[in-house]
Design a protein around this nucleic acid. Structure first.
Lengths: 142, 142
DNA sequence: GTATTATTTGCAACAATGTTGCAAATAGTT
DNA sequence: AACTATTTGCAACATTGTTGCAAATAATAC
């Protein structure tokens, strides 16, 4: 069984990204976290460790491009990011699972085992991707 | 049959909001538009007409508070707004319809007649609201 | 219609967030 | 260790969102 450090190196190598301190740190934070993270989380958690804002932006964008993380839609201006499962790739990047936002703790979770039902669209509409975000109270906060 | 101006006045009166030029203009734009609008749309469309950025922010927020419009989740930092149907109220503000984002024209539409299916969450999770955003190609762009 | 009161607006100033170019630093390769 | 490609940090800037307050406007009372 591989440890986290090796796992992270593999992820980066497989995506043809150099293994750098910032990227490793950010992936570690994703793995430690049990929910989605947003840009400001990284600024806070990495504060004092001299990681530039710009580097974080670019790192997250690179991870998106490579299919390592995905975005979760929100009704505000924040952008939530979560780790993709191994099935994801840059080309085929659909996350067919439900996202859950807890109104108590504010955490956003990927419910990987909850499938998205088929939605019958009106005639003339072609669906490529479906995003479902359920809000309510999570297991931990109940 | 009422004209738009009267309709708009009614909406504002019913929500206990003063009938002001900016609010009427913004509601007119919503009624004219067949899709969701974002803050920058108003700055552009009302440009040259001397409407302050701050006023637009406050107007949109007031409409949200009163249940006149609702937000639509996005994966970027933009915030999309669309008119609520009459059933909405400040207290009970669930929009049980699907949103559709067209990848061609960029427009976001409310599919009012498309119901959101029931989603079976894992044990321990309580759902209060469900947001569904489908992206693909709309009728007009096909 | 005019006066009074409550609400709304615009301005200024600021805070937060996101972007770009470029030189220095670091990682990967030979 | 030397070379090359990539990444980072800095500076500067653009965009977006917020707050306090005085002036303007709308609603209400007369």
């Amino acid at each position: 069984m591989k440890n986290n450090k090796d796992q992270i190196t593999d992820i980066l190598r497989n995506s043809h990204l150099s293994v750098t301190e910032t990227r490793v740190k950010i992936l570690e934070l994703f793995m430690k976290s049990n929910g989605a993270l947003e840009h400001s989380d990284f600024e806070k958690k990495l504060a004092g460790q001299a990681f530039d804002r710009v580097t974080i932006y670019r790192t997250l964008q690179a991870f998106i491009d490579k299919g390592i993380i995905h975005k979760i839609p929100t009704t505000d201006t924040s952008v939530q990011y979560a780790l993709c499962k191994s099935e994801c790739s840059p080309e085929h990047h659909h996350d067919h699972h439900v996202h859950f936002k807890c109104e108590e703790c504010g955490n956003t979770l990927c419910l990987d085992d909850t499938d998205i039902p088929v939605i019958q669209l009106p005639k003339g509409y072609a669906a490529h991707n479906i995003e479902v975000v359920v809000s309510g109270v999570c297991k931990a906060c109940k």
